[in-house]
């Protein structure tokens, strides 16, 4: 059974009196525990597709279901609850909470989004810190961390609540190549260990080669679907 299924997915923005198509009738399916990249140049519609999968945006037409839920039909509160329970996010700009330490940033979804008991929370955050190699940086605030370290914390935050799906919009865009590669490696390692599906977008050809499944978008249309064997 597919984790994500998009059918004739379309998104058109209205800018003044002009309709600007961002995604034009895209169909795809993504299986559980896969490592998927949406690739294409800037403005090709990658982020819009990820936003619709993450129920941050609604399609103009067509349908998208995640975990058998029609996410386009969810209202503001329901979509927040769905995201909190099922989807982790990794952002290009990290978007960590600047007044919290790395530990507290990872802990945040378990308190503010879900409601885990303290002991279980502590064990889970420590496990994630160790998994992303940030145990010794746990007490540092984001402004004391490098870009790569911040993104490691962001990966841990996306996974901490046992998300079944992690969406990462250009997660390596603000990192140098080596660091970017290590972050992608970390994401794949976490997929291997936890079975979480990772869907990320990138326009970096070297990074896109790391994905097992790629969907290539151009002008909002899906022009290529490729699968590569990794081991």
């Amino acid at each position: 059974m597919s984790l994500i299924r998009a059918t004739n997915l379309t998104k058109t923005y209205r800018v003044g009196d002009v309709d600007v198509p961002a995604v034009r009738g895209v169909d795809f399916t993504i299986e559980p525990a896969s490592f998927v990249a949406f690739v294409g140049p800037s403005g090709s519609g990658k982020s819009t597709v990820l936003n619709m999968i993450g129920c941050l945006d609604h399609p103009t037409s067509g349908a998208v279901s995640v975990l058998d839920t029609d996410v386009a039909a969810l209202d503001r509160s329901a979509s927040a609850a769905f995201r909190g329970k099922n989807i982790g996010f990794i952002f290009q700009d990290f978007n960590l909470i600047p007044v919290f330490t790395a530990y507290e940033n990872i802990e945040y979804p378990l308190i503010m989004v879900q409601n885990w008991p303290p002991a279980k929370r502590r064990d889970q955050v420590r496990a994630l810190l160790q998994a992303v190699g940030m145990t010794d940086q746990a007490d540092k605030r984001p402004d004391q961390l490098s870009g790569g370290q911040k993104q490691r914390v962001a990966v841990a935050r996306a996974l901490v609540a046992h998300s079944k799906l992690v969406l990462a919009d250009e997660p390596t865009a603000n990192l140098d190549h080596d660091t970017a590669y290590r972050i992608i490696e970390l994401m794949r390692k976490m997929r291997d260990e936890l079975g979480t599906t990772f869907v990320f977008s990138t326009h970096d050809p070297k990074i896109m080669r790391e994905a097992e499944v790629t969907f290539t978008l151009e002008d909002g249309r899906l022009i290529n679907h490729g699968e590569a064997a990794h081991g």
Partner: peptide, 16 residues
């Protein structure tokens, strides 16, 4: 604003 966007995106309920 960006921080609010981030916490909203990761599922923080509007009431929180």
């Amino acid at each position: 604003i960006r921080e609010i966007g981030a916490i909203a995106a990761i599922g923080t309920p509007p009431r929180r």
